[in-house]
Design a protein around this nucleic acid. Structure first.
Lengths: 186, 186
DNA sequence: CAACTTAGAGAACGAACGTTCTCAAAGCAA
DNA sequence: TTGCTTTGAGAACGTTCGTTCTCTAAGTTG
């Protein structure tokens, strides 16, 4: 099996397992079992579990970024682009594997003992905030709107994760609509 | 040493350690060291680590509830009571031991493998949401305001935790002001 | 076929975990 | 004092973890 193929299989399985059950709760043996890649194979392609964790986070960031931008790009009006963020969240919350933001989860679990994990989480959140800020700027709205919308998206994710329901996306969307109206030139 | 005194010392140390570094990263041996209670003493008062974790969460819920209600009670106008939530958060975020909401952290780390932990997190969040709903009702505002304010508070906590700064409280407070104005009778 | 390389299964290793046990010291009752 | 109970320190136990090693079987090359 080619190295790239092995990497994909491992990262796929690792992402699913780590996201569903937490990173520390999933051992290398289970990753071997689920990925179908032997321990020797795992350590042939990755130097350590820590390295796998970081790559999983990088992939997840790319996937999230792609998902959001794709959903936003389907709208044309600046106001609708901003609201599309919450439509993306609404769809995600309905996925029955949804268990909150993987970066918040990883940060909570490992942030204080694995600086590289904390850094990825910070970068991920900062990247999203900058993206929202660009959309806000493109809409010609007050720049103060951007962190407000980001916080709404953040809160919707944790609320949906813990409650186990997707309602939070709708609540956040309606709040966002009000905040946008207040921050947009008439 | 009386049992109640031992319990307090253990729970104090456990809360500090678990919150700062994560639950799975703190062993019973370190808890013994920091609390100053021998292993035999620990297991004399608590049946297991899992039981300690649940009691820590219960204490943290009581502390949070007391902190918020106390801060809200300092205000008299309904609108100011709602905004006081974010002032409470602002103070908390400045505490240099702040590392996000302990319930979100515990849920992320153990929610999917320890149902009792997930349940405490759900109850904690539901309790807060009901509290906000009561404040909203007392203010005579649209009930839809309540989940919006809860989501803002939630988002502020994770944003502040990961960013490592307290700005999110102010952003959430300003957003809350706008949402309140939109939901309150003129 | 023979020689060599590769790869997988799983044993092995050292460390850490939660929990229990041992043992010696200390306190107390008589 | 003598006997009994309680306590703390820490060894011990069984398990799990991340990582490495061994061995065997299969594949490849000449």
């Amino acid at each position: 099996m080619v190295d790239e193929h092995v990497r994909e299989r491992v990262l796929d399985a690792a992402d699913r397992l780590y996201y569903a059950r937490g990173i520390q709760s999933v051992g290398m043996d289970e990753l071997r079992l689920v990925s179908g890649v032997s321990l020797k194979g795992l350590y042939g392609v990755f130097p350590s579990k820590a390295a796998i964790v970081l790559e999983v986070l990088d992939r997840r960031h790319a996937l999230w970024t792609h998902g959001v931008t794709e959903r936003v790009a389907r709208e044309t009006a600046p106001r609708e682009k901003l609201l599309a963020i919450y439509d993306f969240l609404a769809d995600w919350f309905l996925d029955d594997t949804f268990r909150g933001c993987g970066f918040i989860n990883a940060f909570a679990e490992l942030g204080s003992i694995a600086p590289a994990v904390a850094q990825r989480a910070r970068e991920h959140k900062a990247g999203f905030q900058e993206y929202v800020a660009r959309l806000v700027a493109a809409a010609g709205a007050d720049p103060a709107l951007a962190p407000q919308l980001s916080i709404l998206a953040e809160g919707a994710q944790t609320t949906a994760a813990i409650a186990g329901t997707g309602e939070a996306a709708g609540h956040a969307r309606r709040a966002a609509g009000i905040l946008i109206d207040a921050a947009m030139p008439a």
